[in-house]
């Protein structure tokens, strides 16, 4: 759209180039690149050849009904699940596999850990470590995995808790927090890794409507900061607000994708229409 607009005006090409970059993607290496991903559990194939590219600053929402494979796809990205086929390339570096057969596994444990520290995950059930305080949850991985100085990690951790609005809960245990507060703590924990991308697996699905809003606000702020995010969600409103690209998965394949406007307003496939009407 912008392209058409500016092409017609023939103004300053530098500005034009910059704006083009913003919409069509830069020449720089994608943060996450998936090519032809297949994943099955036994005979049940849940992902049947999915491609996905996330550049720096992209917020990609994965939508689809339960069992469409969207959460599984997310888990394949940080190798919690092993995709049996296809390439996963993180910041230009492909995952190296033990062998190229159906029961392959990642070959290099160090690479797996490096990728995971770079792709922080936020879970549906928060999964805060229950034996650690909120602040300890935030500093645990930076200190033990990244080897950060504890004092620095704590200062940074407190700043992040401040950012997500729960600075006063730093020394409480997760079980003493509401769901929304726990999920915000989990987001702070993910941010503490200073990842190049964040993976959200249904971050608001376990929350009641009131606390859900707190979390959506935080996610919206992160998107506005230009963070790269993959967002699996049931929340179409959030997907429309925060994503710049929406992918509709159906039975393990991408049925439709595009900008939020294209997907939500100019819906092409009947399946997506049905899905969207069922979620309203």
């Amino acid at each position: 759209m912008l392209q058409v607009l500016f092409q017609g005006l023939h103004r300053n090409t530098a500005i034009l180039d910059q704006l083009l970059t913003d919409t069509t993607g830069p020449a720089e290496t994608p943060v996450i690149e998936l090519r032809n991903i297949h994943k099955s559990y036994g005979d049940l194939e849940v992902i049947k050849g999915v491609d996905l590219t996330a550049h720096k600053g992209d917020v990609i929402a994965l939508i689809g009904s339960s069992g469409s494979g969207k959460s599984t796809l997310l888990r394949c990205v940080n190798l919690l699940e092993t995709a049996q086929q296809g390439d996963i390339v993180i910041s230009g570096e492909p995952v190296s596999w033990s062998h190229e057969t159906a029961n392959r596994s990642p070959k290099d444990a160090d690479q797996v850990r490096r990728f995971r520290t770079n792709l922080s995950m936020v879970f549906q059930q928060f999964n805060l470590w229950s034996h650690l305080s909120v602040l300890q949850n935030v500093t645990e991985a930076p200190v033990t995995v990244l080897g950060r100085d504890r004092a620095d990690a704590e200062a940074f951790g407190r700043a992040l808790l401040e950012k997500v609005g729960i600075a006063d809960k730093a020394d409480m245990y997760p079980s003493q927090l509401s769901g929304g507060q726990q999920q915000r703590a989990a987001i702070a924990r993910a941010l503490a890794m200073e990842p190049s991308a964040m993976l959200f697996d249904e971050p608001t699905s376990a929350l009641d409507p009131e606390t859900e809003a707190e979390v959506v606000t935080v996610i919206r702020e992160l998107a506005a900061e230009g963070r790269t995010m993959l967002l699996v969600t049931h929340d179409m409103k959030m997907a429309r607000e925060v994503a710049n690209h929406v992918i509709f998965l159906h039975q393990g394949v991408i049925e439709e994708q595009g900008t939020p406007d294209q997907v939500f307003k100019q819906t092409k496939s009947t399946r997506l229409q049905q899905f969207l009407s069922s979620t309203q």
């Binding site: 940080n78 919690l80 444990a109 850990r113 490096r114 995971r116 520290t117 922080s120 995950m121 879970f123 059930q125 999964n127 470590w129 229950s130 034996h131 645990e140 991985a141 033990t144 995995v145 990244l146 924990r189 890794m193």
Partner: peptide, 28 residues
């Protein structure tokens, strides 16, 4: 299992997962 999976998702090795999360939570 989620507690352990989260540890792995944050880049902990099996050893770190065991000593930092599995053991402390096991006692209870």
């Amino acid at each position: 299992k989620g507690q352990l999976e989260t540890a792995r998702a944050f880049g902990m090795s099996e050893r770190q997962t065991f000593w930092r999360v599995h053991m402390p939570q096991m006692w209870v």
